[in-house]
Nucleic acid binder design. Structure first.
Length: 487
RNA sequence: CGAGGCGUAGCGCAGCCCGGUAGCGCACCUGCUUUGGGAGCAGGGGGUCAGCGGUUCAAAUCCGCUCGCCUCGACCA
């Protein structure tokens, strides 16, 4: 079922705003994250933060501003970000007494311009130089939750914004092997979180040199496919080798009293995950949130006619809400008299709440409740006690159901082919993942990109080892790689 | 950054071609009736027509520039 990209694009823009997740800020490419969107981000942060702590990482915070000269220390790094850096050049504004216009004070120019961080490798490695003296200081496992700025040419809410929020991990290790293991360990954490919490299936893989992070020796990624057939990088983890250690002269004494450069990783996931969530599970009614990250897991809508009913039904609804809350369920009782039940049904469906309980005078008589599933649209009435008892189980079933549904969709959108013309047709008509052989050269990769618009999203870490011939040149290839058009 | 489209009330849009009183739906306010799938009726409030400049007796309307949004392309972890 190919969905027109235009339709999905319009749907996405409308739904993000109508569901109360975010809106455009007056600054191009920037967004205002609204309370519901922020609550969702907090649900994403919490389990990730726990997973980082559980693996020995510590949170810290580094400055927003980076001296321009820091970026220049690592040649590839500065090349990668030069095109999209915001720069602070003045420290004072001045009001023209005649026109009342405000402008940077020409007399208040900074001696060295400050780059608004596009990522924090350089300023963090500057600090690491002082923190690391001995092998006893390693491994150094640091994470920070922060905003970064990349002056994007084509911004989209959540998916690609000029300013975005993320976590960035930065670690230093005594050996290359250990750093590489760290990069892969984080990739596993990302995979588990995205699949088990966001219910989004991903493919773990390595980036080709042309898609690699500027300054990395190896970039790992988790890639997913969205409902419109476009791929999205949902998280990355980099093995940085000794590139930044050398650029910032970070050495440690090993047990044999020899000086060595340390080995490094960096890794991150961002508010882009919210975009991935919307474009993985949404439908014509709005967004659909997996229970584990839904700010509201269950909404209770009381229904009444008379004032007397409003009180009795309202009281019952509140009672059920309190019971569920004590069970650790995130629940909202929507007793707002401003809106009628039908309005509330639509509103909470738009906002993706996984389960809805509706209770009215009839249910009060029979001690029952109407249960509605957001992701299937199914509706059924249950005895109240049974519903309360079953609810945690239902939430788990929904979580699993969403993942499996997304997995089946991606399977349908994934094509194995050895014929280039077929690949072109598929990419043009429906997008999706294309698993094809590649001869391993940047020239072929570039040619395919220029002719089809698709890039190599990753070389899967768990390839189906299979000898074949490059789909473009016919030269020998040892495994299939994942092609797709990407966001 | 290049090409195209769009910008009129909080939101969605008509009006622009052919210059002359700024409109419709939703939302908002008041009242009554309503409430199990986005309620009905009646009354009411809200606009420097994105901004700046030009043409004209007169500009939402014609012309130029700037900004923003959308699509495609270039670029981008």
């Amino acid at each position: 079922m190919p969905i027109s990209m235009q339709a999905v694009s319009d749907w996405y823009n409308e739904i993000v705003e109508r569901a109360g997740l975010a809106e455009h800020a007056p600054v191009r490419g920037c967004m205002i994250i609204k309370p519901y969107g922020w609550a969702l981000w907090e649900q994403i942060q919490r389990p990730l933060d726990e997973a980082f702590r559980a693996t020995g990482h510590q949170n810290a915070y580094f400055p927003l501003f980076i001296p321009l000269s820091f970026l220049a220390r690592e040649a590839q790094h500065v090349e990668g970000f030069a095109q999209e850096c915001a720069i602070v050049t003045h420290y004072r504004i001045k009001t023209d007494p005649d026109t009342r216009q405000v402008a940077p004070d020409p007399e208040a120019e900074l001696e060295e311009p400050l780059v608004v961080r596009p990522t924090s490798e350089t300023i963090i490695w500057h600090a690491f130089r002082n923190w690391i003296k001995s092998y006893r200081d390693l491994p150094l496992l640091i994470n920070q939750w922060a905003n970064v700025v990349r002056w994007e040419k084509r911004p989209r809410l959540f998916l690609r914004t000029a300013e975005f929020l993320w976590q960035e991990g930065h670690t230093a290790h005594a050996t290359a092997e250990e750093a590489l293991q760290e990069a892969l360990r984080i990739l596993d954490i990302y995979e588990r979180f995205v699949q088990e919490y966001l219910a989004i299936p991903v493919v773990k893989g390595r980036k080709t040199p042309s898609e690699r992070f500027a300054g990395a020796v190896e970039t790992f990624t988790i890639e997913t496919l969205l409902i419109d057939g476009k791929a999205l990088q949902a998280g990355t983890s980099h093995f940085l080798g000794q590139n930044f250690a050398k650029a910032f002269d970070v050495k440690f004494l090993n047990p044999k009293n020899e000086l060595e450069y340390v080995w490094a990783t960096s890794w991150g996931v961002s508010t882009r995950l919210i975009g991935a969530l919307i474009l993985s599970h949404g439908d014509e009614k709005g967004i659909i949130l997996p229970p584990r990250v839904a700010p509201i897991q269950v909404v209770i809508v009381p229904i009444w006619r008379t004032e007397e009913e409003r009180l009795s039904v309202g009281q019952k609804a509140q009672e059920i809400g309190d019971r569920l809350q004590r069970q650790g369920i995130r629940v909202k009782v929507d007793d707002d008299p401003q809106h009628r039940p039908g309005w509330k049904f639509n509103e909470w469906e738009l906002r993706g709440v996984p389960l809805r309980l509706a209770i009215g005078p009839k249910d009060l008589q029979t001690e029952s409740v109407e249960v509605a599933w957001r992701h299937t649209g199914e509706k059924q009435t249950y005895p109240l006690s049974a519903a309360i008892e079953q609810l945690p189980h239902w939430l788990e079933t929904i979580q699993k159901g969403l993942f499996e549904r997304a997995q089946k969709r991606i399977q349908r959108q994934t094509h194995y082919t050895d014929v280039y013309s077929e690949m072109q047709t598929l990419l043009e008509e429906q997008g999706g993942f294309i698993m094809a052989h590649w001869d391993g050269t940047p020239e072929t990769e570039l040619a395919i990109k220029q002719e089809t618009g698709a890039t190599i999203r990753c070389i899967p870490l768990e390839p189906s080892e299979e000898k074949g011939r490059c789909i473009y040149t016919g030269r020998p290839s040892s495994c299939r790689v994942l092609f797709a058009k990407a966001y």
